[in-house]
Nucleic acid binder design. Sequence first.
DNA 1: CAGTGGTCTAGACCACCGC
DNA 2: CGGTGGTCTAGACCACTGG
Lengths: 263, 263
Amino acid sequence: MTIKTQPNLQNLSSHFEESTPLVQPKIDGQSRYGWLAAMLRARITQGEWVPGSALPAESALAKQLGVALGTMRQSIAVLVAEGLLERQHGRGTFVRAGLGGASMLRFFRFRQGGDLAAVPASHILKRSYMKANAPTAEALGLEVGTLVLSLLRLRSLGGEPCLLEQLWLPLPTFEPLAASDTSEWDDLLYPMYQRVCGVTVHRAEDTLRFDVLNATQARHLGLATAAPCVRVERRAFDMAGQCIERRCTWGDAHAFNYTLNIH
Amino acid sequence: MTIKTQPNLQNLSSHFEESTPLVQPKIDGQSRYGWLAAMLRARITQGEWVPGSALPAESALAKQLGVALGTMRQSIAVLVAEGLLERQHGRGTFVRAGLGGASMLRFFRFRQGGDLAAVPASHILKRSYMKANAPTAEALGLEVGTLVLSLLRLRSLGGEPCLLEQLWLPLPTFEPLAASDTSEWDDLLYPMYQRVCGVTVHRAEDTLRFDVLNATQARHLGLATAAPCVRVERRAFDMAGQCIERRCTWGDAHAFNYTLNIH
DNA sequence: CAGTGGTCTAGACCACCGC
DNA sequence: CGGTGGTCTAGACCACTGG
């Protein structure tokens, strides 16, 4: 006769009053690995293990939660597929550090000298508080008119301007960026969001459109007014799925170049 | 003591002289499921199971090949991830029918009346034999100057032209398309490739660029000469990874709209 | 070397499908 | 109902990493 052991929930009662309970009820009809994955997901998004750090060994987790090793592995595989975790043979299972290479350059061919991994220099042209208009409010899940932090930013490669960006960031999360000296900022924003504001960008959604430059945009990019451009509207999300950045990027349409695979 | 059984290779010797041997040597260092996947892949791409048909049950395959069920499942999972197979709970494991919804419309917003799944009507403007130029030869893996079949095609939604396409197809594979009445052709080419030429389009690679229309293109699309457009260059591949179509598609840049997710 | 994830086994039982 | 894929177990052994 086979005795089906029940998962073991002890040692998990130290947290309470969290937004997502760390010990979740097993929804009827849900697989055990799906339920394990949901619990791990909650513990990760709530910061029990910070991005870049290692989880306990799968064997330890399996024993702690009272499930078989294979089941534990399956639940971890779910989170790896979601991009939340990363496994390294012989080293451990790690919380992913967040998006690094989400460069807008992926949509353009400004590459000079074959340097595909070049990071364009960043120059903040303007920083201001601003009332959210309808698209920004909708993106960030705020009421129209809520105060947000807005940035105007020019990115250059080899001294040549290539991309113009406007960003809208919710408060008070990004309040730390309102005071610091913009000339000291990094060329990459997302690692800085993490370091300065404690926000990890885990996923982004980019929408591409054709557009023409207005006079101000054209001046910044060194192009003619009404020159054709590609406009990328991005929404970036943290690990909990909350949108924490709206961004519009403009680049010369003649430099546009993007390849994708269809399966 | 544990006795490690050796995989069983009997009942697989009926084919020989194939381009990829159905019974492959197990490369040293390769996992058993990787080796099983390679053998299944060869049997699929060589037509042992035609697209849309079912494979034997995983339990039968595992027994036939002398491996544990879990190992068999893992090898099938590889091919599912590659898009070669599709599993349906309670029904079976099937060879995927090929790309159907690879419409170029994904890049444009011509949708009228919210009908997102509308298939634009197809009209063949021209069909001719042509010597492959450098880009076409490179794409199809032919010598420059090799004869290929070329098509000029206009796609319309609600009577309004929206996309202009030129295609280059290798011979003799697509010879059957050279004779038939083009007014009888389907609106979707890929299912027709499969039915008429026995070619399954399994994967495609699309490269997007900004361009302007020449006079002829503009006339067909009902736009002005030199109007801004987006040009999509596609290479389509069969199950064996061979490029079997080169295609250029032009559409109004103002209708361009594409969203992608970054992880 | 100890500790990690990766592979593989041989079972059991469950959930879904179509007849 | 029989046949399919999906879940889960409790082990064993392998391969990689780092001190």
